[in-house]
Design a protein around this nucleic acid. Sequence first.
DNA 1: CTCCTTGATGTCAGTGTCTGACATCGACGG
DNA 2: CCGTCGATGTCAGACACTGACATCAAGGAG
Lengths: 184, 184
Amino acid sequence: MPRWESGSRERLADAALGLFASQGFERTTVAEIAAAAGLTERTFFRYYADKREVLFAGQDDFEALFLTGLAGSSATAPMDLVAAALENAAGFFPDEKRAWSRARQEIIAANPALAEREQHKMSALATTLTAALVDRGVEETTAALAAEAGVSVFRRTFAAWIAPGQTGSFDTLQREILAQLRAL
Amino acid sequence: MPRWESGSRERLADAALGLFASQGFERTTVAEIAAAAGLTERTFFRYYADKREVLFAGQDDFEALFLTGLAGSSATAPMDLVAAALENAAGFFPDEKRAWSRARQEIIAANPALAEREQHKMSALATTLTAALVDRGVEETTAALAAEAGVSVFRRTFAAWIAPGQTGSFDTLQREILAQLRAL
DNA sequence: CTCCTTGATGTCAGTGTCTGACATCGACGG
DNA sequence: CCGTCGATGTCAGACACTGACATCAAGGAG
């Protein structure tokens, strides 16, 4: 038998989301999260660089989806490449994940420090996308604008997807919003 | 005679910039900054919400310039409105301020936490601009895209303006970069 | 089987950010 | 001359985060 239960990272993330949802981000201490996961505060910081980061695990997988989507496209027009990236990334948001995503987003929206971190992640995504586009031969300024437009579309789609009463699937919504952008 | 010297806020900001430049952001404590300004740590936090914020004072004035520029324009095309805002905001960066801006930007670039805060400010600016455009009758999605494009132009202009060896004035550079964008 | 190394965790002590509560004391109006 | 107001100080404390070192099961080398 192992000395400790496995899956510490996930237990920490689950405990954190639960506590943040029930009592708020600021009123939850890292020690509480760790205790709820059967660990100590010190161990929390071995898995997550800071208290906010626990809500953003999985972001790397998400970014990877954008990149593989882009890599798998044979298009040459910048916006077509971005569209392929978006389409692939939509797979990150199956319907079963909607409630969870909604809960998470509520927590983030309720706390400026978390909103700041989220914006930073989106900005990093745009930078990554820009680099990938440049790799595909897109001129730098064009690439930056296309990437940022793509991220805008993603953000709006996500907001629509978790809106109360919304039942449309992520990729359907995203196609609509992308079309709206392209109409400009 | 006043019980204390006036201009505490400015003294704190000056002391902070100096210390950050000489020994780095993280290795400077708030207590040091306060002491250098002849005040206590507690007073620092009465002027600035957190340690990072001391580098972003004046951001409000800057945002106000964008808004007055936009308000003073009689254009109706979204990008023309944004251009007017950009043009007015350029006044915030006279040549005398270039060295100071460069020093400040170096500090920010050297620290992830500061970069995160800066991105947040840019994002907030885009949101403000979007709202102003919507007020002027621009459709929401269009407004958001135009605002974000405007902020992109500003960012690139700023980067070019503080690049080593650069001597062009802010508004000249900005006109060039805006033209490049419009060519798309 | 025993020994040794390794990796995940715990323990502990400390630094630094940030906050609330309350004290101080010159300025300024009445 | 007095009262109150505003900027600052003092103090205690919560909490995030870090470095150094201890612990101990697992798993491999001999």
